[in-house]
Design a protein around this nucleic acid. Structure first.
Lengths: 241, 241
DNA sequence: GGACGACTGTTACCGATCGTTACACAGGGT
DNA sequence: ACCCTGTGTAACGATCGGTAACAGTCGTCC
């Protein structure tokens, strides 16, 4: 349990777009588990963590794998609003409601830790630090969404795809993986949905970035050849790593 | 102070787009003011409540007036990410940071109540109810942003403008004003920025909705003639009021 | 009071980007 | 082997952006 808790302490807040985000710190699951019952759930690729409308009872910490959150409207429109990986929280958007507000689907075999919600709030009274981190995590989520709103509202299709790749690279880096070479766990359609585009447009953009020698694409296998170039396209200063 | 606190208890969570949002409840400022120093600040139209980069020290509750929050990027891009009116919280996106993350500007003479932030968290330990409401407010903010992300990613320019008008109408209704006739406090450029469009496009859409007899536009004076029609365009069921 | 100027809003035309449609191909699973 | 999904490519067209010129409103200054 100690080793697992160590994984969970990764500070990665969410899908950080253009600008990276400061984070107060991780949630200490080990300490939290002394006050609330933390259940570990495994999900096969394609399975739902929860669906919109199900009774809200817990938030989740992603321990392993890869998931997407989907917003849906009454009239059938749908959109991917975030991708989640190890260290990210899931379900916080539904806090305060009786039912979950969106769908969360595993894109890969995943493990998520269930943190029953009313109990977590009670635990905050005994662990003031937890309260600080929970609110900070929620606020980080807002900043993250806002930064993407800025990107989607001001960037062209090609720039959005570049920003997406830079974001994925940074998140992989934070988790200790190579930021230069990774596998996308989602299809073109999911990327397109997230970026407010159509999947053909995403394909076109990726093909063009490949031709420009910025990246090397083999279906879901991505190699970043010119990270600074991508950053510039995405409207970010080329903060060298 | 009692009357003022009563105003402040309006549950309006934020700019609610397509789907309306459930809210746990308002923040009890009267009770809160026993634990933290609540300062009332007046802002003239055009003044900033705070700017990105200034030291973070408080969140704010809008008591009167109208404000916008602006996200900015390193390379000069800018976007309005929300409009705030009475009962809305401002500054929550910066919780957990040392400095504010965005600009907040009054679009009209306004009054905001300053809730010093670390103290608010301490007060939560004495007022568990406050903690519930604060986290619920933050989560509501996330849902709100997500709902708009869905709208901006899936609707056409005309539909976005319709959704914007429906949202404004609902918020006016919640505050006890007429949802059929109101004055926009922001210019076309701000609306366009918020909706991810150009101001000419917003103008064109408004003109067309006017020709379709859905609304009556006189510059910033808006009359909704066919609310259900607007709702249908915006992809929302015509929940009759 | 009237004239000027700045700002905001409106309209038109043209062009670029992105969506639409269609089809071909690769890969994985049964 | 087969199908089915996901991916890549291309031609066409619609929506929205870019640019510009004009009108209406407000404030200021004379």
């Amino acid at each position: 349990m100690n080793a697992l808790a160590a994984y969970a302490t990764n500070p990665a807040p969410a899908t950080a777009p253009p600008q990276a985000m400061g984070s107060t710190g991780p949630i200490d699951v080990e300490q939290l588990s002394r006050h609330v019952q933390v259940v570990r759930r495994k999900l096969a690729a394609g399975q739902h963590a929860y669906r919109a409308g199900q009774p809200f009872h817990a938030i989740f910490l992603v321990h392993a794998g890869f998931l997407k959150t989907c917003e849906l409207s009454e009239d059938g429109r749908e959109r991917v609003t975030s991708f989640r990986m190890r260290g990210d929280l899931v379900g916080v958007e539904s806090i305060g409601l009786a039912h979950y507000a969106c769908d969360v689907v595993a894109l890969d075999d995943s493990e998520i830790w269930e943190l029953p919600y009313p109990p977590v709030l009670h635990a905050c009274l005994r662990m003031p630090e937890l309260q600080v981190r929970l609110t900070a995590a929620l606020a980080g989520e807002i900043r993250n969404d806002r930064a993407w709103m800025l990107a989607l509202g001001t960037l062209t299709a090609e720039q959005r795809v570049a920003a997406f790749l830079v974001d994925m690279a940074e998140r992989h880096l934070r988790l200790g993986f190579s930021p230069r070479h990774f596998l996308l766990r989602m299809g073109r359609a999911d990327i397109a949905s997230f970026l407010g585009l159509k999947h053909e447009t995403v394909t076109r953009a990726l093909t063009k970035l490949d031709r420009l020698q910025c990246i090397d694409v083999q279906r879901r296998d991505i190699r970043l050849l010119d990270t600074d170039g991508l950053r510039r396209m995405a409207g970010q200063g080329s903060t060298v790593h």
